[in-house]
C-alpha cells in the first residue's frame, strides 16, 4: 500500500510547514512502514540563516528530522487504529536515538518505521532513517499517545 501526500493530510493533523512527510511508499498497517521526506532549501527552517555561513550550517535541524520520523510512526499507528480516531498525536517519550550523519537540502530521507507495541492507548515505535545507502539516524524507542484537542487545551491547575 502506498499513500500519497493528500492521504497523509487526511491521517495527520499536522499542516504546512510542520507536515514533514511527502509520501509513504509501503506500509503493512500495525507492523511497519517506509516513508519519504525530501529536504529542500525552500523550507522555512532555512529562512533565518545569515548570509555567508559555512556549508555545515545548512544541516537539516535534528528536531525536524526526529519529528519527521515520528510522523511516520504516527501514520503507521493511526492506520492500524482504523476510522473514528479523533485527537492529536502527542510525542511523549524517546529513548536511545542516535543521529549518525547530517542531512542537507537535496537529500531524500527514507524512514523505516516498525510499530513495536501498542499498550493501553500508547504506541511504541522504532526504526531508522536513511539517505541513499547511508544511515542517518537510529531510533531505539519513540512513544506517543493520542489526546483530544480540548483535553490538551484544558489546563489542570
Amino acid at each position: 500500500m502506498r499513500l500519497e501526500h493528500g492521504e497523509l493530510r487526511t491521517l495527520l493533523p499536522h499542516r504546512y510547514p510542520m507536515l514533514l512527510l511527502d509520501r509513504v511508499d509501503s506500509v503493512e498497517p500495525g507492523v511497519s512502514l517506509e516513508a519519504v521526506k525530501a529536504v529542500t532549501g525552500c523550507e522555512p527552517c532555512y529562512s533565518g540563516i545569515a548570509e555567508g555561513q559555512a556549508p555545515d550550517r545548512y544541516a537539516y535541524p535534528a528536531s525536524l528530522l526526529i519529528e519527521s520520523f515520528g510522523q511516520g510512526a504516527a501514520v503507521l499507528w493511526l492506520l492500524s487504529r482504523g476510522p473514528g480516531t479523533t485527537g492529536l498525536p502527542m510525542f511523549t517519550a524517546a529513548r536511545d536515538c542516535v543521529l549518525l550523519r547530517q542531512v542537507y537540502p537535496g537529500d531524500v530521507i527514507r524512514h523505516r518505521v516498525r510499530l513495536e507495541q501498542v499498550v493501553h492507548g500508547a504506541a511504541f515505535a522504532a526504526g531508522s532513517s536513511w539517505v541513499g545507502t547511508d544511515q542517518v539516524a537510529e531510533f531505539g524507542s519513540m512513544m506517543a499517545v493520542v489526546r483530544p484537542a480540548d483535553a490538551i487545551a484544558e489546563r489542570k491547575r
Binding site: 511523549t92 517519550a93 513495536e116 507495541q117 499498550v119 493501553h120 492507548g121 500508547a122 511504541f124 512513544m143 499517545v145
Partner: peptide, 20 residues
Amino acid sequence: LRAIEILARIEKKYKVEIPQ
C-alpha cells in the same frame, strides 16, 4: 505515562497481557 511504559516493557519481556 510512566506506568504505561513500565507495563509495556513487562508485557514485552514476559509475553503477558495485563488488563488496563
